[in-house]
Amino acid sequence: MEMNQIIFILFAAIIVVFSILTVTSRRILRAAVSLLFVLVSTAGLYFMLNFAFLAAVQLALYAGGIVVLIIFSILLTSHISQKMEAVDLKKSVFSALAVILGMILTITTILQFSFQATTAAAAEINMEVIGKAMLSYEVDGFVLPFELISVLLLAAMVAAIIIAKKGSPVSDAPNPDKP
């Protein structure tokens, strides 16, 4: 068995195990840490696929940004040691059933399908190519989605601030938890 296959299996195993932990752990902070592992392993897969830039982005943005954000919000909204109540059995059984059926359906479809690769030579991917493609408006240029995403990010930023900003206290809000 080749080295890279072993590494792939390692990453795959980490991803599967920690994904499951992410969605089942009853301590929300542990779930967040599991998610971090999953994301780091995914970055490893990107490296294996020879997308070094994207792997770096994944590490920086997901692992460094989003997970930290999530942990912050967890700390804001709940206690560290707080255990979440167990999942309703009926709900989890039905969900698991649907998910497993969907998984079987997808995997059998994947295995039955024969993928056709192009014969064209692989392109060299380095920062220069990516940067030029991102700002190019020629064929294979991505300036339009790039601009759109920048507008989206700005809008999301503004929206996040406005939503989270402490407005006037809502006194008449229904509160099912407090009597």
Binding site: A98, L101, G102, L105
Partner: peptide
């Protein structure tokens, strides 16, 4: 919300199954 999501996903799966 999750009940809606469950129904939605079951429907999608069913449709996918039918289509495939």
């Amino acid at each position: 919300l999750q009940k809606y999501g469950f129904v939605f996903i079951s429907g999608v799966l069913l449709l996918t199954f039918l289509m495939v």
